[in-house]
Structures are given as C-alpha cells and as structure tokens.
Amino acid sequence: NITYDSTPEDVKTWLQSKGFNPVTVNSLGVLNGAQLFSLNKDELRTVCPEGARVYSQIT
C-alpha cells in the first residue's frame, strides 16, 4: 500500500500492481504519496480516465 511518505517510484509500482492502465500509471506515477493523496476525485478524473477508480483505492 502507499502512504504519505511513498516515493513516486512506490506510487508507480502500486498503480501497476492494482492493474491500472499505462496512461494512468504514467500520469500519476510522477507524484509522491502526499501529492497523490492531496488530489480529490474530480482532479484525479481530470488527469486520467481511471481517476475515479484511483480515488476509491486511496480513500
């Protein structure tokens, strides 16, 4: 699982392990844990089509 202390590499690995598509992995894999957790559902949806699914995994 990812935490606020996760590195971008951790986030990328976590996204891949959850089966998100490469677009999602590449879009969000540049963020660290704190940055990812700071995004709300609408912001995640704006960044990638699977944003709502990512949001449900981190809340």
Results as ranks from 00 to 15, higher is better:
2 I>A: 00
2 I>G: 00
2 I>H: 00
3 T>C: 11
3 T>E: 05
3 T>W: 08
3 T>N: 15
4 Y>A: 14
4 Y>C: 15
4 Y>T: 15
4 Y>L: 06
4 Y>S: 11
5 D>N: 12
5 D>Q: 12
5 D>C: 06
5 D>I: 08
5 D>K: 14
5 D>G: 09
6 S>N: 02
6 S>V: 00
7 T>K: 10
7 T>S: 12
7 T>E: 12
8 P>M: 06
8 P>Q: 13
10 D>E: 15
10 D>T: 08
11 V>M: 01
12 K>M: 08
12 K>V: 09
13 T>Y: 07
13 T>C: 13
13 T>H: 11
13 T>L: 12
13 T>N: 06
13 T>D: 09
13 T>G: 11
14 W>G: 03
14 W>M: 04
15 L>D: 00
15 L>S: 02
15 L>G: 01
16 Q>N: 06
16 Q>D: 10
16 Q>P: 01
16 Q>K: 13
17 S>M: 12
17 S>K: 14
17 S>P: 00
17 S>C: 13
18 K>N: 13
18 K>F: 13
18 K>I: 07
18 K>W: 07
18 K>T: 09
18 K>V: 09
18 K>C: 12
19 G>A: 07
19 G>N: 15
19 G>R: 07
20 F>L: 02
20 F>V: 05
21 N>R: 08
21 N>S: 12
21 N>P: 04
21 N>G: 11
21 N>D: 09
21 N>A: 10
21 N>K: 14
22 P>I: 08
22 P>A: 13
23 V>S: 07
23 V>N: 10
23 V>G: 08
24 T>H: 03
24 T>K: 00
24 T>A: 03
24 T>M: 00
25 V>L: 09
25 V>S: 06
25 V>D: 05
25 V>I: 13
26 N>T: 12
26 N>R: 13
27 S>D: 02
27 S>I: 09
28 L>R: 01
28 L>D: 03
28 L>N: 12
29 G>K: 06
29 G>T: 01
29 G>E: 04
29 G>A: 06
30 V>Y: 07
30 V>K: 15
31 L>T: 03
31 L>Y: 15
31 L>F: 15
31 L>A: 03
32 N>M: 01
32 N>A: 07
33 G>M: 02
33 G>W: 03
34 A>L: 11
34 A>E: 14
34 A>H: 08
35 Q>F: 00
35 Q>H: 06
36 L>M: 13
36 L>S: 01
37 F>H: 10
37 F>C: 10
37 F>E: 04
38 S>A: 14
39 L>Q: 08
39 L>G: 03
39 L>H: 04
39 L>R: 09
39 L>D: 00
39 L>F: 11
41 K>Q: 13
42 D>V: 08
42 D>I: 15
42 D>P: 07
42 D>A: 09
42 D>M: 08
43 E>I: 08
43 E>S: 11
43 E>R: 12
43 E>L: 04
44 L>A: 11
44 L>F: 11
44 L>I: 11
44 L>M: 15
45 R>C: 15
45 R>I: 12
45 R>Q: 13
45 R>N: 15
46 T>E: 13
47 V>A: 15
48 C>M: 02
48 C>G: 05
48 C>F: 03
48 C>I: 06
49 P>T: 07
49 P>R: 07
49 P>K: 07
50 E>C: 02
50 E>H: 01
51 G>D: 05
51 G>E: 01
51 G>R: 02
51 G>C: 01
51 G>W: 05
52 A>Y: 10
53 R>T: 09
53 R>Y: 07
53 R>W: 09
54 V>M: 03
54 V>A: 05
54 V>L: 05
56 S>K: 08
56 S>N: 14
56 S>G: 12
56 S>D: 13
57 Q>E: 15
57 Q>S: 13
58 I>V: 15
59 T>A: 14
59 T>I: 12
